[in-house]
Amino acid sequence: MSVTKAQRDNYQQLVKKHRPARTIVKNTIRAFIVGGLICEIGQVIQTLFIRYGHFKPTEAGNPTVAVLIFLSAVLTACGVYDRFAQWAGAGSAVPVTGFANTITSAAMEHRSEGWIAGVGGNMFKIAGPVIVFGVVSAFFVALIRYIVTHL
């Protein structure tokens, strides 16, 4: 006798009853604060590049992102970033540091399978979809902008 639909539905109710509530409010506040702080750090770094590195404000963005990516990669390599992310949630995932973490962690994980097939083949395993859909959506946004400005 296989499981009937009624039994499944009953069980889903039971599971729902015992599933601990996700702490959405707490998670959202943490994500807001941590995500904001990471951006704030980025802003400080950018200001330093402008003030002491004599970068133009429009050009200071790239070295700033590079520093944040470097910091995130170092923290990932030291085994700190994943623990921080469990606490911070989206706050650590959304900024560029989260993106750097996906690439660094995948590269580290697959190092044992060699440089080409391991690191090269798997580095963008998690980041790949972000890049694909980032480029696709950028294309359509650019297309819309082109049409709007040339009409």
């Binding site: 970033y81 962690s105 580290m108």
Partner: peptide, 17 residues
């Protein structure tokens, strides 16, 4: 983690379940 989920050092938040 590698086989069923994500790289060890990847920062994904896991639910309490």
């Amino acid at each position: 983690e590698r086989q069923f989920r994500y790289p060890t050092e990847y920062g994904a938040q896991k639910p309490p379940t």
